[in-house]
Amino acid sequence: MVKLELEKLGLHPTSIELGEITIQENCIEDKKEELIKNLELIGLEVLDDKRSQTIEKIKTIILELVHHSEAVLKVNLSNHISSQLNQNYHYLSNLFTEANGITIEHYFIAQKIERAKELLIYDELSLSEIADQLNYSSVAHLSKQFKKVTGLTATDFKKLKIKLREPIENL
């Protein structure tokens, strides 16, 4: 969709990645407002300042790591983000917290819990396997964070999910 919108304006994308577009043209100031308007109509937001772009890149790195990586999450988060963006982690952490009101670590934990919820819903892995996949030191550690974030134990969440799947007349 993004490529189509760019081409409608006579722009030629060389690369379209999640959160970043590279185009052949050097100056697009005359088409920039129209492009922004067209992209907003299809539900996309253009981040024009470096700070917003950096924050979105941090979120993308975490989302990729937690939700789209097949590897077990055994990376040092601060080193990973810092090396991916080639910037000082302390600066990135302050920037992220200032913009979002939560730390990178809390955002990471929230995403891990979302992933745990998905895996619980799929019902293919045990809680122990989920804890291992998400690089928790123990099931107890996962359970404690799960309860802190969701207000439910993982077992209660699973029971609630099963109950919600029952036909309405059985409830």
Rank of each mutant, 00 (worst) to 15 (best):
F96P: 02
E166T: 10
Y122K: 14
H80C: 13
N135T: 11
I81Q: 10
L125K: 12
A131L: 09
L11W: 12
K159P: 01
I36G: 02
I102C: 01
I130C: 13
L39D: 00
Q24H: 10
R165Q: 10
I121R: 12
Q84S: 15
K74V: 07
E114V: 14
S82M: 11
L142A: 02
N170M: 07
L47D: 00
N170H: 05
L77T: 02
I162V: 05
L95Y: 07
N100E: 00
K74G: 05
Y122D: 08
N26V: 10
L134T: 08
A71L: 07
E56A: 15
L4Y: 14
Y89T: 09
I58M: 14
L11M: 15
K159I: 08
I58K: 12
V2H: 03
S143L: 00
S83E: 08
A131M: 11
K163G: 07
H80L: 15
F157C: 09
E40C: 00
N100F: 00
R115Q: 12
I104A: 12
S15W: 09
Y107P: 02
D49N: 11
Q84P: 04
T97R: 03
I113C: 02
E98W: 09
V66Y: 11
T155F: 08
L44Q: 09
A154I: 05
K163A: 08
H80Y: 15
L152C: 07
N94W: 03
L134I: 14
E169S: 12
N170I: 07
S78R: 15
E169F: 15
L4F: 14
I28S: 09
K37E: 01
S69M: 15
Q133Y: 13
S93K: 07
H68W: 15
Q24R: 14
N170K: 10
K37A: 02
S126A: 06
Q111N: 14
A71M: 04
I104Y: 11
L47M: 03
L35G: 02
K31T: 08
K32N: 07
A71Y: 04
E124K: 14
